[in-house]
Computed example of a mutant assay.
Amino acid sequence: MIKRLAADLHTHTDVSRHGYSTVYENITAAKAAGLLAVGISNHCPAHPDGAPEGHFRNLRVLPEWVDGVRILRGAELNFTNFDGEIDLSPDTIENRLDYTIASFHEDVIAPGSIKDNTKAYLHAAENPLIDIIGHSGTACYEYDYERVIPEFGKKGKLVEINEGTFRVRKSSAQNCRTIARLCMKYSVSVIVSSDAHFCRSVGQFDEALAMLNSLNFPKQLVVNADMEQLESWFLRKRRR
Results as ranks from 00 to 15, higher is better:
Leu77Phe: 13
Asp116Glu: 09
Ala139Glu: 15
Val192Tyr: 00
Val66Leu: 00
Ser136Arg: 00
Ile40Val: 11
Asn81Pro: 00
Asp83Leu: 09
Leu209Arg: 00
Cys44Ser: 15
Glu94Ile: 07
Lys170His: 03
Leu235Ala: 15
Lys219Leu: 12
Ala7His: 11
Arg4Phe: 09
Ala33Asp: 01
Gln229His: 15
Asp49His: 11
Leu88Ser: 12
Ala110Phe: 13
Ala120Tyr: 05
Ser187Phe: 08
Leu72Asn: 03
Thr80Leu: 11
Cys140Tyr: 13
Leu5Thr: 06
Ile149Asn: 11
Thr13Leu: 08
Asn175Thr: 01
Lys119Ile: 01
Ser21Lys: 08
Val38Asn: 05
Arg239Pro: 02
Leu122Val: 09
Asn127Thr: 12
Pro218Glu: 09
His10Lys: 00
Tyr99Asp: 00
Ala46Trp: 12
Ile93Glu: 09
Ile114Asp: 04
Glu94Ala: 06
Val148Leu: 09
Cys176Asn: 07
Ala33Gln: 06
Lys237Trp: 15
Glu64Gln: 12
Tyr24His: 11
Thr138Gln: 13
Asp98Ser: 08
Ala210Ser: 12
Arg17Ser: 14
Asp107Pro: 06
Ser201Lys: 07
Tyr143Met: 08
Arg96Val: 11
Gly19Glu: 12
Asn26Asp: 14
Arg169Ser: 10
Asp107Met: 09
Asn224Gly: 10
Gly137Trp: 10
Pro48Val: 03
Leu212Cys: 02
Arg17Ile: 04
Trp233Ala: 13
Asn26His: 12
Ile114Gly: 01
Ser136Asp: 06
Tyr24Gly: 01
Asp107Asn: 10
Ser16Val: 08
Asn216Met: 02
Lys119Pro: 03
Arg239Met: 15
Asp226Met: 12
Ile132Val: 06
Glu126Leu: 15
His10Trp: 11
Gly112Glu: 04
Thr11Arg: 05
Ala225Leu: 10
Leu158His: 14
Gln204Arg: 10
His12Cys: 05
Ser193Lys: 01
Gly39Trp: 09
Ala196Gln: 08
Arg70Phe: 02
Arg200Ser: 13
Phe205Asn: 03
Glu231Trp: 13
Asn95Gln: 15
His197Ser: 00
Leu209Ser: 00
Glu25Cys: 08
Ser171Asn: 13
Lys170Cys: 06
Ser172Arg: 02
Leu122Pro: 06
